[in-house]
């Protein structure tokens, strides 16, 4: 599963794979072994990064994740990497049309915002998937005409499930 996070000016691209009893993490190209375990009864986690011990409190607020580490609070925005790609595409000028929009995360399809045959502009919302109690609006990165809709509203999807195809 991939994430793109921001803390002030800093950004991090992260890919997480569950491997047996720990997590294999690729953070900006660095391979790390992580373990993230909740402590009993609280939103507090023991985090091991390559064996180094950290303890963090985590709270979700207004779409951000507030991480308290050593008594200091950090506000982190965690997004889907697609949003980063989208940002890059916005700066990249015209691109070829046609794309398949997939759910970046496992979750519930809350809304489909397009029908087959609709013309979708770059950046236009096509679906909303709810996960982590957050509604994630999925937008067309390139744009095109809706050729197929692969899911229905109120259905659960997994990460990578095709939602909408554009040509």
């Amino acid at each position: 599963m991939k994430f793109w996070s921001q803390l002030g000016e800093r950004e991090q691209d992260l890919e997480v794979r569950v491997t047996g009893t720990h997590l294999d993490v690729d953070a900006d190209g660095r391979a790390l072994a992580a373990d993230f375990v909740p402590l009993p009864g609280e939103e507090v986690f023991s985090l091991l990064i390559d064996g180094r011990v950290h303890e963090v409190s985590v709270e979700e607020k207004d779409g951000a994740i507030l991480v308290t580490l050593h008594g200091q609070r950090h506000k982190v925005l965690v997004r889907h990497p697609l949003e980063k790609t989208l940002r890059e595409v916005r700066h990249a000028g015209p691109a070829a049309s046609g794309e398949v929009i997939e759910s970046p995360i496992p979750g519930l399809v809350v809304a489909l915002k397009v029908r087959v045959g609709d013309v979708v502009a770059k950046g236009q919302a096509v679906a909303v998937v709810e996960a982590m109690k957050m509604q994630n609006e999925l937008t067309a990165q390139v744009g095109g005409t809706v050729s197929a809709i692969h899911v229905e509203e109120k259905k659960n999807v997994e990460a990578g499930t095709k939602l909408v195809s554009l040509t």
Partner: peptide, 19 residues
């Protein structure tokens, strides 16, 4: 560490809230 923790939290939530 905070960046990593936030993403891992999102990851854990994604795994656990799957309806």
């Amino acid at each position: 560490v905070a960046l990593l923790a936030a993403s891992l939290h999102a990851h854990a939530r994604a795994l656990s809230v799957r309806p």
